[in-house]
């Protein structure tokens, strides 16, 4: 077992629901959440969730992944800008082929497997982004 179970558990809400904190003094959003605003040092923070659609800003493709991530190659790491809050977050893209990626494309959050601690350890789940599902109505 190589993963820290305590850390995965502690961070589960930011992984599962994009939990963040907004600083009530400087109004900046801290994601991942922290106990002190990393912009102004204030401890005057409120919890928020950033579970919203996003636009793709930039991306990179990982073809040589570290242990626990190998089966998920190629891994598309992306910086996306959330549509409502305008917060920029680092995430992964899923359900998309490399030749389908376009800057500015509209994406939506989905819960997916991110890595596995071998065949016997814990499975890590987190929000990734995929192209918005086309709807007929």
């Amino acid at each position: 077992m190589k993963y820290s179970i305590a850390r995965y558990w502690r961070e589960r809400h930011s992984h599962y629901r994009l939990k963040a904190v907004r600083c009530l003094d400087c109004n900046r959003v801290n994601y991942p959440p922290s106990t002190i605003c990393r912009y102004c040092g204030s401890k005057n923070l409120e919890e928020i969730e950033l579970f919203e659609q996003a636009r793709l800003l930039t991306w990179s493709v990982i073809h040589a992944a570290t242990e626990g991530f190998e089966d998920y190659k190629p891994i598309i790491i992306a910086i996306v800008e959330l549509v409502d809050s305008k917060v920029k977050i680092l995430t992964q893209l899923t359900d998309i082929d490399l030749d389908e990626i376009k800057p500015g494309m509209l994406l939506e959050p989905v819960l997916r497997r991110v890595s596995e601690d071998d065949a016997t350890g814990i499975i890590q789940y987190a929000i990734k982004y995929r192209p918005v599902l086309k709807r007929g109505d």
Binding site: L111, R112, Y125, K128
Partner: peptide, 13 residues
Amino acid sequence: AGRDEDAITMGWE
């Protein structure tokens, strides 16, 4: 299901 999907992720959606 894709490589990053399982019964949990599909059930979640």
